[in-house]
Simulated assay, not measured.
Amino acid sequence: MYKTRVGIDARQFKPAQKKRQEPFVVGRVDLPSYRTLKGYDLVTSALKDLNVKLEIRTFKDKVPRKDMMAFYQGLDCFVCSSASEHIPLPVLEAAASGVTIITTNVAIVPELISDKQNGIIVKREAHAIRHAVQIVMNNPDMREKISQKYSGRG
């Protein structure tokens, strides 16, 4: 039996010094082969016609590991729309980077996220994701409060 550690390197993933104001940026990490499982189309449908910039990283346009902190720091919120996960490392990395998390109730998420305290847990439906993004987008004080709690700043 081997013991492996799962988690993030807090020296690598930390909040940005300054947050951007415009445009509002929503991030996802996806594998094209897992399009349905990870909810790619669900998120694009949820954000249709919203004034947001969607940043998706896949193996096609993969961000090198050393540049992932900058990717997360450039986001205003991160959406995990997965139907199944083991341990959603992008959720941990985004949260450690001070990014507000919007996620489905998947894997260990309920152990990590307390709804509306240090993230938002939504049903795996486009309208629920859209509604959560709109709330986060229109409430910068709430977004800052939520992101501070998970990143250890609040």
Score class of each variant (00 low, 15 high):
42 L>C: 05
69 M>N: 13
95 A>N: 03
127 H>T: 15
51 N>S: 13
134 Q>A: 10
69 M>P: 10
41 D>I: 09
138 N>M: 10
139 N>Y: 03
138 N>V: 00
147 S>T: 08
110 P>E: 01
132 A>L: 02
126 A>P: 05
51 N>T: 08
146 I>S: 07
134 Q>I: 05
48 K>D: 15
42 L>K: 11
152 G>L: 06
53 K>G: 07
128 A>N: 10
125 E>I: 08
144 E>P: 02
51 N>H: 09
102 I>V: 12
108 I>M: 14
47 L>S: 11
57 R>D: 10
49 D>W: 02
77 C>H: 03
94 A>P: 09
74 G>S: 14
107 A>G: 15
110 P>F: 04
49 D>Y: 03
95 A>P: 00
149 K>L: 14
119 G>C: 09
82 S>T: 03
137 M>Y: 05
73 Q>R: 02
64 P>Q: 00
115 D>M: 04
49 D>A: 09
130 R>N: 11
76 D>Q: 09
119 G>F: 02
43 V>D: 04
46 A>R: 06
138 N>T: 06
87 I>G: 14
40 Y>H: 11
112 L>I: 14
115 D>P: 02
142 M>N: 11
128 A>R: 13
100 T>L: 11
107 A>Y: 00
91 V>A: 08
122 V>I: 06
123 K>A: 13
143 R>H: 07
148 Q>C: 12
116 K>D: 13
150 Y>E: 14
88 P>A: 13
46 A>C: 06
125 E>V: 10
41 D>P: 04
72 Y>H: 06
105 N>G: 04
122 V>W: 05
97 S>N: 08
149 K>I: 15
50 L>G: 03
104 T>H: 08
93 E>H: 04
111 E>T: 08
133 V>A: 01
150 Y>H: 11
60 K>D: 11
54 L>N: 10
58 T>D: 07
122 V>E: 01
86 H>D: 15
121 I>R: 00
46 A>M: 07
145 K>L: 12
146 I>F: 09
50 L>Q: 07
41 D>V: 06
58 T>A: 10
148 Q>A: 14
135 I>Y: 14
104 T>E: 10
151 S>D: 12
118 N>Y: 04
69 M>A: 15
72 Y>L: 04
127 H>K: 15
105 N>E: 13
97 S>F: 05
126 A>R: 07
97 S>G: 08
121 I>S: 04
42 L>M: 12
92 L>G: 12
130 R>C: 04
108 I>Y: 08
136 V>R: 01
104 T>P: 05
66 K>P: 10
64 P>F: 00
55 E>D: 14
144 E>H: 14
106 V>I: 01
49 D>V: 02
85 E>H: 06
53 K>A: 13
